[in-house]
């Protein structure tokens, strides 16, 4: 499986990619806080921030089609949640708050997307550590990130095997049932693997506490 399927554009080499990760985290958080704190009546400022965010995406070489695809995934959920506000008043008001919610959610999402797609995950981890995240949590994060790829490979193998054995039209119940079994089997295999990993860690001197080089 391709190693970069998770954060596809984060390993680019543009000007933005070379900035220190801590700076980018602080900058992005500042933009997000500004978007959330400013009242929506100051919409020209929001417009400027939107231009800034799009410019940043352009500089970082993140294609527009990717952004649109991601926004298309997010938008239905945000719209549904925002729609609850006017719906709660029988559509006789609350549109201002609802549109403010959608605008803020989109802007902050795009800002976060820029951060995520200009910074590889290992740099983010190091920055988290420097910003004071507990060491055990950072090590667990690194551990999880490493095993994501293993688990995804396992899942892909199991799906291939399943497709090879089942073909033709099946009832919805059969599809549901086999999907449940797929995840359950993945769970059992992952637990078995964690057992083996634990054995390997013990044989290399693991005593239940984290030691890192830095």
């Amino acid at each position: 499986m391709a190693v970069d399927f998770l954060d596809r554009y984060s390993r680019g080499s543009t000007w933005c990619h070379r900035w220190p990760a801590r700076l980018k985290i602080v900058l992005t958080l500042a933009v997000i806080v500004a978007v959330v704190l400013l009242p929506i009546s100051l919409w020209p400022i929001h417009g400027c921030l939107a231009c800034l965010i799009f410019a940043a995406h352009a500089v970082a070489d993140i294609p527009l089609s990717y952004l649109l695809r991601r926004v298309a995934l997010l938008l239905p959920v945000v719209l549904l949640m925002a729609l609850c506000v006017p719906l709660s008043r029988g559509f006789s008001g609350g549109w201002e708050l609802a549109s403010a919610l959608v605008a803020r959610a989109l802007l902050t999402f795009l800002a976060a997307l820029w951060l995520v797609n200009t910074t590889p995950f290992d740099r983010l981890l190091a920055a988290f550590r420097q910003l004071g995240m507990p060491r055990s949590f950072v090590v667990l994060l690194a551990f999880t990130y490493r095993y994501l790829f293993v688990v995804f490979d396992e899942l892909a193998r199991m799906r291939t095997a399943q497709r090879a054995r089942t073909f033709g039209r099946r009832s919805p119940w059969a599809v549901w049932n086999s999907t449940v079994q797929l995840v359950a089997m993945l769970l059992i295999r992952s637990l078995n693997r964690s057992e083996r990993v634990h054995q390997a860690m013990l044989s290399r001197g693991w005593q239940g506490e984290f030691r890192t080089i830095d």
């Binding site: 667990l140 551990f143 999880t144 095993y147 994501l148 293993v150 688990v151 992952s190 637990l191 693997r193 964690s194 057992e195 990993v197 634990h198 860690m201 013990l202 693991w206 005593q207 239940g208």
Partner: peptide, 12 residues
């Protein structure tokens, strides 16, 4: 000490 690798694997 098994819970540490177990937690990471479970999250994945």
């Amino acid at each position: 000490s098994r819970t540490i690798p177990l937690t990471g694997m479970l999250a994945a």
